[in-house]
């Protein structure tokens, strides 16, 4: 029998208790099916040097054209602020993540073991195992699907961008002037809809691969069961004595990168590039923070308290009631 840690036991007990309490056993399922993931071999990707736009980016844009936002002509500012996030005049931008560009390639030159190595890294949503973007959406507008991808419900999203704030990479991109908030009080509440890679959900549901995977001329992107992708990444990593990214970050993701140079160095270069941009604070240009934690780790670490508190309350009440009744009150 495998050893169960106290934390695991507690977690399972809470889950079992919750399901019984809610009677919602049908609704809950453990995410232990056979979800899909991707493995990016950065020793093969060259960012399509010979093309004006990398093939994966072009394929993604063509594939998802129909899903891109169609905002209103007149977009209100986000009262009481004098801002709005409108990317509709930057639809052609392919050098960062925008509501109209769900993947792009970052290229850095890194000194490693006395050599200068150029690394190209296609970026998009990592489709995390326990995605805080989906878990923490106050309106339930984002979900981890059994197949693995994390999807945004554009009918329900109000564009608060909390998902972007809790994502270690700030992936989801916001477009104002579109979505549910336009039907309520667009000036005062809501801010648009968040957009990001859905791993070509319709394609993978019908057994296909994401458009970027098929388009890669270097076969640098592999797609399949997450487990198999992790194994492939680990094997490749051992073979080149390299570095792996995405297996531990944010508590685990379904996107694995293998690089010949450390991701700490890549991150430094990316931060340099970002700081030199026209607006260094603009979203859509993720770094590669190594072993970055999940925002939910601390909260989840306190769950035992939520089990103990009512037990303590009941115990204290029993004792108090016994004492008062004994005292004839």
């Amino acid at each position: 029998m495998s050893k169960m840690s106290r934390r695991d036991f507690l977690k399972r007990s809470v889950v079992a208790g919750g399901v019984v309490m809610s009677g919602a056993g049908k609704l809950a399922f453990a995410a232990d099916g056979s979800p899909v993931g991707t493995f990016y071999d950065l020793t093969k990707c060259d960012g399509c040097r010979d093309l004006p736009v990398p093939a994966c980016v072009t394929a993604c844009r063509e594939e998802n054209q129909q899903k891109f936002p169609r905002p209103a002509d007149q977009i209100e500012l986000y009262w009481p602020r004098n801002i709005k996030e409108d990317w509709s005049d930057k639809k052609e931008l392919t050098t960062r993540l925008t509501p109209y560009n769900w993947t792009f390639v970052q290229t850095v030159s890194v000194e490693h073991n006395g050599q200068t190595v150029q690394v190209s890294m296609p970026r998009r949503c990592m489709h995390c195992d326990n995605p805080p973007c989906a878990t923490l959406c106050p309106f339930g507008a984002q979900n981890k699907m059994p197949e693995g991808p994390v999807l945004i419900n554009k009918e329900l999203c109000l564009g608060g961008a909390k998902c972007r704030d809790v994502c270690p990479w700030g992936i989801p991109a916001r477009q104002a002037g579109v979505g549910l908030y336009m039907k309520i009080a667009p000036k005062y509440l809501g801010a648009g809809v968040m957009y990001k890679c859905d791993l070509c959900y319709d394609r993978i549901r019908s057994g296909g691969a994401p458009a970027c995977v098929e388009a890669c001329p270097k076969r640098a992107i592999q797609f399949g069961e997450t487990k198999a992708m992790l194994e492939a990444a680990q094997a490749r990593n051992s073979a080149i004595n390299g570095y792996i990214y995405g297996d531990k970050e944010n508590g685990g993701t379904s996107t694995f990168y293998v690089s010949p140079v450390p991701f700490e160095r890549i991150n430094e270069k990316l931060q340099e590039q970002k700081s030199r941009q026209e607006n260094p604070k603009a979203p859509g240009f993720p770094g590669t923070p190594v072993e970055v934690g999940n925002i939910l780790d601390t909260a989840n670490g306190t769950v035992a308290g939520l089990v103990i508190a009512p037990l303590a309350g009941a115990f204290a009440a029993g004792y108090a009631a016994y004492k008062t009744m004994k005292g004839g009150e």
Binding site: R12, V14, G18, G140, A141, P146, L296
Partner: peptide, 20 residues
């Protein structure tokens, strides 16, 4: 709280109901 635990996932519809 359950949903926030790494090992638990709810269906999209359940998430909307619970949140709302």
């Amino acid at each position: 709280v359950l949903k926030n635990l790494p090992s638990v996932n709810f269906s999209a519809q359940a998430m909307v109901w619970i949140s709302d």
